[in-house]
Structures are given as C-alpha cells and as structure tokens.
Write a protein that binds this DNA or RNA. Sequence first.
DNA 1: ATGGTCGGACAGTCAAAGGA
DNA 2: CCTTTGACTGTCCGACCATC
Length: 288
Amino acid sequence: MVDNNPDAEGRQSPNSSQDSVQPQMTMHPVTYSSMPMHMYPFPPGSMPSQPARTKRRQVKNACTNCQKACKKCDDARPCLRCVKYGIAEECIDSQRKERQKGIKRGPYKKRDGKASGSEQLDNSSPQPGAMMPPPVAQPSAPSPIPYITPYPPFFGQYAPTHMPKAGEAPVYVPQLFYAPMPAPQPMPPPGHVGQDGEPAPAYAPPSFYPVYPAPYPPQAYAGAYMMHAPRPDGAMHHHPHHYAPYPQMYPKPPSRNSEVAGQVADGRRDPRLEPGRVIDGGHGHHGK
DNA sequence: ATGGTCGGACAGTCAAAGGA
DNA sequence: CCTTTGACTGTCCGACCATC
C-alpha cells in the first residue's frame, strides 16, 4: 500500500534514485505480457525528468517453477524463465489457496477528511475485486515495442479449456504455438535486455521463437514446436486475464539440447528442475 | 558463469466493518 | 450499496552458495 517507503526499492539501487533505474528494467518486452502492470508511457530513452515512482510489479499468478524458485515470472505460459530453462512444458500456473473467511477485522480508524488509500496513478482503477478486463494499450500511449496485438487482450480469444461448473467462471488459456524459425534475426534490437533488465543472454541471437496464440491455425505450423500448458489437475485457474502471449521473441534456450525446435519438447527438461525436486522440495520458508 | 536456495520486503486481494 | 481498512497470501529481490 504504502508507496512511499524510501527503503522499499532503494535496495536495488544504492545511489541513484531507483526510479531512474526501475523503468528501464521493466522496459524489457517481457513485461508487456502483463501489460497494465508494466506499461510505461515513455519510449526508451525519453524518461520524464520527474520520473513517476514505480513500484515493483507482480504477476497475478506465478508458474509453479518460478514460484518454487522465488523468481520473477510473467503472465504468459510458458513464462520466459521456463522457456529459458527449457522447462516450458512444466510451466503451469500455481494454485492459490482459498482465502479464509470470517476472520475478525480490527476496529477501523477514522479517516480525517482525506481521500486515503488511493495514491493515484491508477485513479481509474476499479474497485478491487471488480473483474474488469485489463486496459488495452492506449492509442495515445506510444508503445515502446513495435508489436501490436491483433487480439482483444481478454477472454474470448480462447476457447474455455475446461467447462465451468455452475457459478464458476470459464477458464481461458492461451494456446501457444511456437512457429518454426523464420529468417535469422541479425541481432537483438538495441537496448535489448534480458530478464530483470540483465544484459541479454550471450547465446546466439539469431535463434528466436515467435510465439503465436491459438487463433493461428495449428496446422499452419504442422510439425512445429508447439506448446500448450493446461492444468493437469483441471483445477481452476485463477488468472483473471490472459494477455496475448509474448509479443517479443524468445531467444533459444541455451543448448541443453541444441536440437531443432521441433524436438525441444523432449530435450528441454532440466534435471535440476525435476518436479520431484522442485515441487514441494524447495523452500519450506513462507510456510504459509 | 549459471542456477538454486532462502529470508524477508513488498504488492495485491478481498471480506469485514463502517458510512451514506 | 459503496467505501474503507487491514489481515492475509503470493511474488520476487537480492544475497549467498553450489555446481558446471
């Protein structure tokens, strides 16, 4: 809530104001997979003189792998991290546990005549809990990336992946299809950075995997690397929204199995992230 | 160099409480 | 019914360590 904790993000940048750093980090295209949270209205290199304070943004639901590793995830499935580590097939939403009800709330403070709470930046934001589609990229806001999703960024573009029970919202999961590799890309665009603002991975830049959502006919990519990440247990997705998958291109994962794309599905497993080890094994902290 | 582990700060959610 | 509040829960930063 408090957005003015000087220590909140100062950790990340000892000297300069983190505001001048954070936006750049979050400029990474991957962040646009969760657009409203990561959208910055300023093209790279033209940050406002008085940078708006940025908060750390979180995805609504990290995948199980990122969750276990306590690493940054994104809204797309597979997420960048899983793709990078070659475990895209295991990139599934974690399940949030149900919130307890009936817990007693303490006595509330009287407010002193000021509109509290909403430190405005998102004064247009609806009531919390209101299920609203995320704002589509504003036409006036210059997109820092050349990609413009041809799809409405919300439900309807995907068929429900499981039939909802009464009173349950249908679940839409983007069907991702990795297209065969197109013409080699010469180099990553200038300013291309890796996850978390790190420099782009050192491995060969030409290998990119464009990702297309379901509406692209699968047969058009027959034999292509294809991914789909359904919940194995059929449990309810908590994702209130799914944006168009990565607008950016994925660098090919470092060759744990440097085969052609079509075989990646078999070779992407990282033994260090075996479910038996990752799932449940990890952490223990949070004990929540 | 790269990835895993983990403590803990932070962010977001949402239901109870209070007010109009 | 709407708004406010704050407990609750998940995310992930960043330091450290292990492995290749």
